[in-house]
């Protein structure tokens, strides 16, 4: 497979097919991330297209010492944040409570209460995770999706968000705990 930096170099040299290869490589992870973060398929496709258009327009500003996927997802993340701002969705106050008004959990001793699994089938569990994911604050949801669906490392996520690794780990942990609590409630 051709290296991302090589594809960017070729694109900047005017080879359209090189950018087509970039789209083919990243469309699936982007649609997955954007879709699960905004919770709407049509919007996911529209936003993904816009992200690729923005990426192409600013490709000359890309600095090769950054990992391309990190840079691409940073553009996508900023696009979604702009969308939330325009829609006046509060995606940023993650330190107090989630969308249902539940408090965000401090780091605590492992919960030994009723199991989230109970006796559910995998398909039922998946449905519950999907539903719970849409109930947590968008900013935490984004990080959870990156970590557990896009398989990003904490370091990559910290680079995208411009935050310390410890902060990212703590937020992903909060997201997991909130999802687990929501699953118990279903």
């Amino acid at each position: 497979m051709i290296d991302d930096k090589e594809l960017i170099h070729r694109t900047l040299a005017g080879e359209k097919e090189a950018f087509e290869m970039i789209i083919q490589k990243y469309q699936q992870p982007l649609v997955n991330y954007i879709g699960r973060t905004v919770g709407n398929y049509e919007q996911a496709l529209e936003f993904t297209q816009e992200v690729f258009i923005k990426t192409y327009a600013s490709l000359h500003t890309y600095q090769p010492h950054y990992k391309f996927s990190t840079w691409l997802f940073k553009i996508a993340s900023n696009y979604i944040i702009d969308f939330w701002r325009k829609k006046k969705i509060d995606a940023f106050s993650i330190d107090q409570q989630d969308q249902s008004g539940n408090k965000i959990y401090p780091i605590q001793i492992a919960d030994k209460g009723p199991s989230v699994s109970k006796h559910y089938e995998l398909s039922q569990l998946r449905e519950k995770v999907e539903a719970a994911l849409q109930k947590i604050p968008p900013a935490l949801r984004e990080l959870f999706v990156w970590r557990h669906m896009n398989d990003f490392s904490y370091e990559e996520m910290a680079e995208i968000k411009g935050l310390p690794v410890g902060t990212i780990k703590n937020r992903v942990f909060q997201a997991k705990e909130m999802i687990r609590k929501h699953m118990e409630d279903f």
């Binding site: 997955n32 398929y41 492992a110 995998l122 995770v129 557990h148 669906m149 687990r180």
Partner: peptide, 18 residues
Amino acid sequence: ADSKLLLQTASSLPAWDV
């Protein structure tokens, strides 16, 4: 076991189709 199940389930969610 509980946490493991949660992470495994999240990781096994089907990808959104393109």
